[in-house]
Design a protein around this nucleic acid. Sequence first.
DNA 1: TGATCACGTCAAAGCGCTTTGGACAGCGTC
DNA 2: GACGCTGTCCAAAGCGCTTTGACGTGATCA
Lengths: 347, 347
Amino acid sequence: MNLKELAQNLGLSQTTVSRALNGYPEVSEETRRRVVLAAKQHNYRPNTRAKGLATGRAMAIGHVIPMATKHEMVNPIFADFIAGAGETYAKAGYDMILSVVEDGDEPRIYRALKSRGTVDGVVLHGPRSVDRRMALLDEIGLTYAVHGRSTSYDAPYCWLDIDNENAFRRATEFLLDLGHRRIALINGLEFMDFAQRRRGGFEAAFAARGLAADPGLMRADEMTEDFGHDSATEMMLADAPPTAFLVSSIIAAMGVRRAIEDAGLKMGRDISVITHDDALSYFPNGRRGGRGRPIFTATRSSVRQAGRRLAELLLDRIESPGAPPGTELMEAELMVGGSTGPAPNGV
Amino acid sequence: MNLKELAQNLGLSQTTVSRALNGYPEVSEETRRRVVLAAKQHNYRPNTRAKGLATGRAMAIGHVIPMATKHEMVNPIFADFIAGAGETYAKAGYDMILSVVEDGDEPRIYRALKSRGTVDGVVLHGPRSVDRRMALLDEIGLTYAVHGRSTSYDAPYCWLDIDNENAFRRATEFLLDLGHRRIALINGLEFMDFAQRRRGGFEAAFAARGLAADPGLMRADEMTEDFGHDSATEMMLADAPPTAFLVSSIIAAMGVRRAIEDAGLKMGRDISVITHDDALSYFPNGRRGGRGRPIFTATRSSVRQAGRRLAELLLDRIESPGAPPGTELMEAELMVGGSTGPAPNGV
DNA sequence: TGATCACGTCAAAGCGCTTTGGACAGCGTC
DNA sequence: GACGCTGTCCAAAGCGCTTTGACGTGATCA
């Protein structure tokens, strides 16, 4: 069933039917009722491609997800982020187009999305401290919004980020207040902007008390469970082992906990752990049903909510291209759980 | 840059340029070379929507991802599955369209995808033992492929599944061989087809030895970390606790391990655990760099590979609609890791 | 020498929609 | 009675591509 048939069926022109369905004023209420009813009865929906051709709008947003070639690894937070963004798109009538792309291949994909007119805008994931993608997108004229920020790009652009410095500064202060001094940082890859900022917050907390973080207690890599495990194990075996860990992801934190238990110690008593918690749906950190306090003390911020919100910012930008790009900085909440306690023997 | 401009630029008709680019024979090699070169220089790519309108093909595949409304939870294996499918689509020049949809809303989405012509086919996720979606898709005439199977649907359809019965039967036999008799099953929701089959394999292994699995040692729910933890804790506190756990997901298995350690026991010595391992990229079960054996003894099958392969089956089906639908049953590999050992005191 | 045939090319129709620029009827105004 | 509105509706153009049917042009054949 297409517009032509529907119009013939109703004894009206395509123009009138189209206008009736799209809410234009120059059609009588009586006619509109008839049209809307008939459309529903015949289960008519306008063809996306034809509509797009005529309007020049794709009614679709692209997500280009970088994949670490080395590990064939996709960041697990994407599932929840995408779910959040998807909610926003569904409400606004947009489709979501996903491309999983190997590291170096992004520019080609962006160019293709633009020149083929597949999308009205894209979400840029995983910004690095030095990142050329924003400049590229501005150059080719593809509207975008960034999940995170990049220190390297000065021109105004649309982004949403959590306040990583502040979150990790507060977490570090919390550990310092508990008497910990040998605090290890298990971070994401530090060419990533978020990891860079977290490290900044970590070091700033030390500096504010006239202390310095030990560079020997810092690790950075892709945040898998076994990276958490292996780096924690290694540091715990060293001469002056840490009394606390600050971890960038709950998945790596699971690995840290495993390392602590492998060593015959107890997390929260012998060794403290704070992790960042993206509120992943399949990794509830003790909040479902309110059964007591969280497993991990954590800086918490819902990545799903970030997805919802960033999608809104992008759609706003697409629908009013003149306005200055929206930005949003979300604060993470520090939740005290069972994984932290006073430093042993007041070291 | 569109076809018209490119054609004018070259002093050729749109017809010839189109044919040259699409590899039709009725154009001279000399001309084709000129056209291809000019297209590259001007960075020309045909507009997806216009091409789609003209050909009637969307060159896009839809993935409709059901979301458990109750928990706002998206199954974490999707990230890897999607990454795999995405590889196949990219090679074949298809886009991937994602809709995250609340449980009851799927039929509406399928109808919309069909009538709006957004996709050439869809992948159906998370089939249940009794599932009406295949019948619906056949009725509305939308080509599809199923990740998994459903016992309830008899008509031939395109699917790819792992041999869940066999995997869990072998895993159970492995535990029985080690002397375990009180084996607990921590399963996914049992209206899901895969969970049903896994339970079938579990019970069959007992039955084959004239034994019976204890219904008091079976739990089924969404496979989060805390579901694993809570159900393991509960069973371990009961009068006759299990000596081994068979777990349907590595994420739940992490929770089981936490429960075991909370109880002051050691996994692999005091209590054995076998899990199914989807080879999630961020949860390497001890295979990176070959550092010793896996953490968990596991039935392993790469969900990413499943994504790649199922996408191929679907594209085949789209490109030759006449052929009988392709199906594939993948065997899971039983990998022995550190989480299993002989049953204590020969119970 | 005229008919035939590839070969390379083109003009134009069509895909399903939106949107521009009228057309027409009914109404009040001067 | 002519005029200008206003409220409804329509025909047709156009979005960028593919594809059908036709058209020259040399070369080939009888």
